[in-house]
């Protein structure tokens, strides 16, 4: 427990900020097709929120929220969503990720919009899991003084 981690101001601010950062990350992921942002950026922001939590409340507490097993499951789930969407387009007679080939709805433009969102969600899940596991793997065991970033 370093001095930064004991500070009640930082602990309270982090506890209040983390849900809003996660909400912003979801916004960035869902608006990736129509505006700036996308799966990668949203996933990085979501991962940064959990990394921030783990930095202030301790690695052990962070691992309680985001265990290594959950990390692995999320990383492979996102990749599976991405690959399955792409392969579904091939199965339906298009090219890889050629969305409007999928006869899900009568309007091809709408199918394309929904599938782009699905792909972005898959990318976001993978990126957030990989970012968090990178941090957990690199970070020192415990009770090392660390800077509060972000």
């Amino acid at each position: 427990m370093s001095r930064i981690q004991e500070s009640v101001i930082i602990r309270t601010v982090v506890r209040i900020m983390v849900p809003f950062i996660q909400l912003f990350a979801l916004y960035v992921i869902m608006h990736g097709a129509s505006g700036p942002g996308g799966g990668f950026q949203g996933g990085v922001i979501f991962g940064a929120a959990i990394i921030l939590y783990a930095m202030i409340y301790g690695i052990a507490e962070g691992k309680k929220k985001m265990s290594d097993a959950l990390d692995k499951i999320l990383a492979s789930t996102g990749l599976t969503i991405f690959a399955a969407t792409g392969l579904a387009c091939i199965v339906c007679g298009g090219m890889f990720l050629q969305y409007h080939a999928v006869p899900l709805l009568p309007d091809p433009a709408k199918v394309s919009r929904y599938l782009i969102d699905l792909v972005e969600i898959g990318i976001g899940i993978t990126v957030l899991a990989v970012m968090i596991s990178l941090f957990f793997d690199i970070s020192p065991p415990e009770s090392e003084p660390e800077e509060a970033e972000e």
Binding site: V28, I45, A48, F135, I138, P140, E146, E149, E150
Partner: peptide, 24 residues
């Protein structure tokens, strides 16, 4: 879009990872 990525990855995650590496 690129600026967004630079701010999130360059100024955010990379700094945290570097500092975590430095602590070791």
């Amino acid at each position: 879009d690129v600026g967004f990525t630079e701010a999130a990855v360059g100024a955010g995650i990379t700094t945290v990872l570097f500092i975590a590496t430095l602590a070791r």
